[in-house]
Simulated assay, not measured.
Amino acid sequence: MSALRVAVVGLGWVGTHRHLPWLKRRSDVDVVGVIDHTPARVERAKSLFRITEGAVAEGPHAVHWLDRVDAVTIATPPATHFSLAAAYLQAGKDVLVEKPMALEVDQARELGDIARREGRILAVVHNFQFARSTLRLRKLIADGRLGEVQALWGSQLSNPRRRLPEWYESLPLGLFYDESPHFFYLVRALLGANPEIEVVHVVGGKDGRNTPAAITLLMRAGSIPAQISMNFVAPVSEWHLTVIGSRALAVLDVFRDVLVVTRNDREHLGRHILRTTADVMTSHLGGVARSGALNFMGRLAYGNDVVIARFVEACRTRVPPHDMSAVDGLEVVRLQHDVIDHARVAAR
Rank of each mutant, 00 (worst) to 15 (best):
H182T: 13
R163A: 14
R188S: 06
P160A: 13
N159P: 00
Y177N: 13
W167C: 01
S170Y: 01
D178I: 00
V187L: 08
W167T: 08
R161F: 11
V187K: 01
P160T: 11
L157R: 14
H182G: 05
P160D: 12
W167V: 02
V187E: 03
F183K: 08
F183N: 12
E166Q: 11
L171Y: 06
E179C: 04
Y185W: 10
P181Y: 10
Y185N: 09
F183D: 15
Y185Q: 02
A189G: 04
N159V: 08
D178R: 13
E169R: 02
L164A: 10
S170D: 07
N159Y: 08
L186E: 03
E169P: 03
R188T: 08
R161Q: 15
P165K: 04
R161W: 12
W167P: 01
W167G: 06
Y185S: 05
Y185P: 03
D178N: 10
L186Q: 01
E179D: 12
E166L: 11
R162H: 12
P165W: 08
E179L: 14
L173M: 15
E166G: 10
H182C: 09
R162L: 10
G174M: 07
L164I: 03
Y177L: 08
L186A: 05
F176T: 07
D178C: 06
R162Q: 15
L175R: 15
L191V: 01
D178M: 08
S158D: 11
P181S: 09
F183M: 11
P160K: 13
S180Y: 14
R163M: 12
L191P: 04
P165L: 07
H182L: 09
A189P: 01
Y185C: 07
S170I: 05
P181H: 10
S170M: 04
L164P: 02
L171Q: 02
R188F: 03
L186V: 00
V187P: 06
L173A: 07
F176A: 09
Y185L: 01
Y177A: 14
R161E: 15
W167R: 02
E179N: 10
L157Q: 13
L191S: 02
L173N: 08
E166F: 09
L191I: 03
L164K: 09
L157I: 01
F183E: 14
P160S: 11
W167Y: 15
N159M: 09
R162E: 15
Y168C: 05
G174F: 07
E169K: 00
L191E: 02
L157V: 02
W167H: 13
P172Q: 07
L190N: 07
S158F: 12
L164G: 04
L191Y: 03
R162I: 14
R163H: 14
E179K: 11
P172S: 05
G174R: 04
N159F: 12
V187H: 07
E169F: 04
L191T: 04
P172N: 02
G174N: 06
R188H: 04
F184Q: 11
Y168P: 01
F183S: 12
E179R: 11
V187N: 03
R163C: 02
L175H: 15
R161G: 11
S180E: 11
L173Q: 06
S158K: 11
N159K: 12
F184R: 08
